[in-house]
Structure formats: structure tokens, C-alpha cells
Amino acid sequence: MKLFGYRLPAMSSLILWGLLWEVFGRLEVTYFIPSLSAIFDTFLEIAPTKVFIKAVSETAYAFLAGTFYAVVIGVPTGILMGKNRIIDELLLPWVNMFLSAPLTALVPVLMVLFGFGMKSIIIITTLFAIWIIILNTRAGVMQINRSLVDMARSFGAKPIDAFFKIYFWAALPEILGGVRIGFIRAVKGVIIGQLLISIVGFGALFELYSSNFLMKHFWAVIIVLFAMAFTISEILAFFERKVAYYASKRG
């Protein structure tokens, strides 16, 4: 959108929303929505506290561990599926199923199998992220330009060269796309896991704040979480755009 001939940056309306929130909060219409500045003050207050740092580090740990497994298992599986028809046909129905299945329903199973702790949260995070990573990697490998493959062969490329010099790079945009969506899903998974197994990380904080009706505290945590999720997604989108032309010229 343009204003007085200036092009307004894409996300700039969030500032306007912030102002609206501030005004709404100061009018004290509802107890549930305190003003943004008050929330910010509360944030500064709780940020250095032990509980908060513990929640952040526990969440970060679960997220990183979960996404690590998702990538380390997901990318090779996707490549394997893209290259081998039997494996593909055996696995694809399940990958598709778990991609759209409401995995939240599995949390109770994980709780009884792996306990009410970090392990279950890491597994649920991996489960949220992995399927789209597999599927995108597979798609990336499968739609590599046929003539790039022929080209490598016509120059007598060894399989290992063909893989590291061609297939991996040609599939990279899709792989990164899958990783980005996978990470967004992992953020949701980590939070859902913590909400349902509410003794770890932010789950414990939510429980504490909401049972004591600490609205400012609650919002401070929410905003931090949302901002972190959005930042992660934008950083990955940036890398994805950087390599987008790797896939150019695809028929």
C-alpha cells in the first residue's frame, strides 16, 4: 500500500495494531486485555527471572532436539523415497496420512509410553515437523530436471559426484521449503506438547500465570513466543529465497 507516495513496508500495519491495542488496553474495557506498554514493563520484569529463563531454555532445547531429529531422519528418508520406487510406495501412504492427521491425539500415548517429561515433548515436536520435511525432500529429488541427470551421466559422473554435485543442490530449495514449514509446525508441536504435559517449560508458566490470573505476565509470554516463531519462520524464508533459483528452469 502507498501513503503520500511512499510505499509502506509489508508488515508495518502491525505498528498500527500495536497502537490500537495500547489505546484499547488503557481504556480498560476488559480485564483480559491490558495495555501493550504495561505488558512490556511486565516482560522486562520477568525476563531476568529464573523461572522465565528456565522456560525459554527448556523450550529451546525441546525445539532444537525435536527439529534436529526431524531433519536428520526426514531428509535422508525423503531422498530415499525419491530415488527408490518400492520404498516410496511402501512409505508414502503413511507419510501422507501423518501429514494431515491430528497428531495432537498422540500426546496421551506418548505420555504413557515416555513419561510426563522432556522426552515426550521432543518426540511430539519431531512428529509435527518430520512429515512435511520428508514429503518436500522427496518432491525435490523427484522433480530434478531430467536433463541435469542425463548431463551428469553423459560426462561420466560417478554416483557419489552426481549426488553431491547435482541432486542435493537441485533439491535444496524444496528441502529448505520443507524444513521451514517443518520448523513452523515444530513450534506449534512444542507448545502443544507443553500445554498438555504442563510441567515443563512454557506449559508450566501458562499454568502458573493463568491460575493466578496474571494477565500481563501471560500476554508477555504469548507475545515473546509469537515473535520468536515469526522470526524463525522469516529467517528460514530468507534462506529459501536465496536458493530459489537453484531450481530454476524446471519443466
Partner: peptide, 21 residues
């Protein structure tokens, strides 16, 4: 310009966190 950013943030955000609220 006005509305999209809200949904873009919502899309990336773990909205489940709003449940206690």
C-alpha cells in the same frame, strides 16, 4: 496492508498458547 500481517503472524505462531486465555 492492514489485515494480512495479523494472519501471517497467526500462521507462524503457536496459537495453542492462547487456550488458557
Amino acid at each position: 496492508w492492514f489485515i494480512s500481517p495479523i494472519f501471517i503472524v497467526m500462521q507462524a505462531a503457536p496459537l495453542a498458547a492462547l487456550i488458557p486465555l
